Structure formats: structure tokens, C-alpha cells
Amino acid sequence: MAILDPADMDKDLSVGEVAERSGVAVSTIHFYESKGLIASWRSSGNQRRFPRDVLRRIAVIKVAQRLGVPLATIAQALKTLPDGRTPTAEDWKRLSAAWKADLDERIAVLTKLRDGLEGCIGCGCLSLGECPLRNPWDELSEDGPGPRLLDPR
């Protein structure tokens, strides 16, 4: 890893430097850019250059992904940040608070699923007509067992 010269602190980064410093692949950086998560500009030599704040933005993206936040949701959140400024702890607090309710809801659903799974293993039925894990949205079960031909119209 190259040692950063303090004189270079105000300089923009190449895609390779961003990859090295952020720990993500160059292809991932290109992907993030194509999805509008980060932005670059082209130098006079047509080289892609990134402002330094992209490193913090990539860190936010990676943490949010580990939490299971979809990239589209991350992109919407990042659009609320001002361009040309490194995201702050206050920015992160605001972004993560917005994702907390969704995470709490997913945890509740998974807990309910886990608890239902324990009961299902206990009964062993896996009934198409009654099992909420095997067939949770079955509206035709009221018509009795067996297959149904659905009208494709």
C-alpha cells in the first residue's frame, strides 16, 4: 500500500486508488457509479477521477449492504447528501435511522418465521391447506384439497 503524501490530500483519486483504499474491486466501483451511488469526472487525459469523499460514501454503501438495505434504497439516501462533502457522523445517524424501522420489521418477520418453523417441525404436516409456512397466501385452500386450473386471463 502506498504511503499518502499530505500534499496529495486535496487531489482526486483514480479508480485504482479508490479500489485500494476502500477495499472493493474496480468492477464494484464501476457498478456503484453506474447505479448512481457514486460519481466521478474525466480528466483531460480521459481518466476517471473520484473526489476523496467517495471513500466515505463507499463505506456507507458497504455497511448498509451488510444490513440488507437494497441498493436502490441506498442510492435514494445518498442523493440526500450534498455533493462534494464527505458524509459526516450526523449524516450517517440520519440515514441509519431511516433504515432502522425497515430492519426492525424484517427482524420481526424473521422471528415469526423462525417460531413458526419450530412448530412446523414439531407437527411435521407441511399441509398445503393449513401450513402457514408451506403455503401462507393460499386463497384457494377454502375450495378443498387438490390442484386448480386457474384462468390465465
Rank of each mutant, 00 (worst) to 15 (best):
C123I: 08
I3F: 14
V109L: 14
A72C: 03
A39L: 06
S22Y: 08
V18W: 01
R49G: 03
I121T: 02
R21G: 00
D53V: 06
L128P: 01
M9S: 14
Q47W: 07
G116W: 10
S34E: 13
L78S: 01
G146R: 04
D115Q: 10
P152M: 07
P6D: 13
P6R: 13
A98S: 08
K62G: 00
I107L: 14
I107K: 11
L113F: 09
V18M: 03
E139G: 09
K93L: 12
P147E: 11
V69D: 01
E105F: 08
L71T: 05
K100Q: 15
G146L: 09
E118L: 13
E105A: 15
L81E: 12
D115T: 06
A75N: 07
G122D: 11
L71C: 04
R52K: 10
Y32S: 08
A89W: 08
A72L: 13
S43T: 14
K35I: 04
H30N: 12
V15I: 15
W137T: 14
L149Q: 05
L149N: 02
I121H: 05
G129C: 01
P87L: 12
R66L: 05
A97H: 10
Y32A: 05
L128R: 02
Q65Y: 02
G146W: 03
L149E: 08
I3N: 05
I121P: 02
L95C: 02
S40D: 09
K79C: 09
A98L: 11
P132Y: 11
V18K: 05
C123G: 02
A89R: 12
R106M: 06
A108K: 12
G23M: 10
K93F: 13
D10F: 10
T88Y: 12
E105I: 02
P136S: 04
A59H: 09
E139L: 03
L55C: 04
L140P: 07
D102Q: 14
L110H: 13
R106L: 04
D104N: 06
E139H: 09
A89D: 11
A72Y: 00
E33Q: 11
A25P: 03
E17L: 13
D5E: 15
R94W: 10
K35S: 00
E20D: 06
R66C: 02
K35F: 00
V26Q: 09
G124Y: 00
W92D: 12
P6W: 13
D91F: 10
G23A: 08
D151C: 03
W99C: 10
K11Y: 03
G16V: 01
G45K: 15
A7G: 09
R21I: 08
D8W: 08
A98V: 10
L150M: 10
V54T: 15
G116P: 01
E105P: 00
I58Y: 10
A19E: 00
R56T: 15
D138W: 04
P6G: 07
